[in-house]
Computed example of a mutant assay.
Amino acid sequence: MGNQYEQYKELLQSFDKGYELCYEYDSMPHQYGDEVLYQSEMHFLEVVGDTPSITITVISQQLGKTKSACSQMVRKLVKKELLTQERNEKNNREYYLNLTERGKEIYEVHKEFDEKCMQRTYKSLADFSEEELRSYISVQKTLNQVFQKDVDENGVLEVAGKRKKNKSK
């Protein structure tokens, strides 16, 4: 195995460091204008801003979250006056979600910040060729497939002495 195996281990160490940094970034609150939000809140607002009058069902599918988790997020963001709910007149159990004016302002601030970050990252990768970037994408996709298998095979919870498949996302 030799050198290639050592490179593989270095690749995984680099991946783990990147994961830790992403996790740390996603776990910390961020300032958007005069509002402090966590990434999960901002991602939710982003989906609503990108798709006005979206429903909780559609958001839950897009984000891979349960309807219950999305409903909790809606309550939190409505309380912060960043989101509105409008009942569907044809289906009383369904609500359309939209950003408030304040929510729209934060959405725009976030889009500008995101673009700035994307440009900074893009510039930092300028020394890599298209071929090198394609190779990285290929390696990452292969790793993601393996990681998914790990999740599928090992996503088991111990609940009251019984094994239960972990379906949470």
Rank of each mutant, 00 (worst) to 15 (best):
G103D: 12
E112I: 08
N88Y: 09
P52W: 06
N88C: 02
R93F: 00
E35W: 02
K116N: 11
V109Y: 03
T57H: 15
H30N: 02
D34R: 07
L99A: 05
E81P: 03
T100G: 08
T55F: 03
N98M: 01
Y107L: 03
G33Y: 14
Q31I: 04
E46N: 06
R134T: 14
L63M: 15
V36Q: 10
M28F: 11
V109P: 06
S68C: 05
M73E: 12
T100D: 06
L133I: 15
G49P: 00
D114P: 02
E108S: 14
F128W: 15
D114Q: 13
F44V: 02
Q61G: 11
Q62H: 03
D34N: 06
P29W: 08
S129T: 12
Y107M: 12
R102S: 13
R93C: 00
S71I: 10
Q119H: 09
G49Q: 05
Y32G: 00
S129Y: 07
E41C: 05
T51H: 11
E131T: 12
L99Q: 07
N88W: 06
E94W: 01
M73K: 13
L133V: 15
S135H: 14
S68N: 08
S68A: 13
K104E: 13
Q85T: 15
E86G: 01
I54T: 03
N88E: 07
V47R: 06
Y38S: 04
T121K: 15
P29S: 02
S71T: 15
Y107G: 08
R75L: 06
I59G: 05
N92I: 00
M73F: 07
G64C: 01
S53L: 11
E94N: 10
V78F: 12
S27Y: 10
D127V: 12
R87A: 04
T84L: 05
E131R: 14
Q72A: 03
C70G: 14
V58M: 09
F44E: 06
K65E: 09
S135Y: 10
F128A: 09
Y96S: 04
L77G: 08
Y122W: 03
I56E: 04
L99E: 09
M118G: 01
T51F: 03
Y95L: 00
Q119A: 07
D26E: 09
E35H: 07
K104V: 06
H43W: 07
T57N: 10
T84R: 13
E89I: 02
T66S: 15
Q31W: 07
T66V: 09
G64M: 01
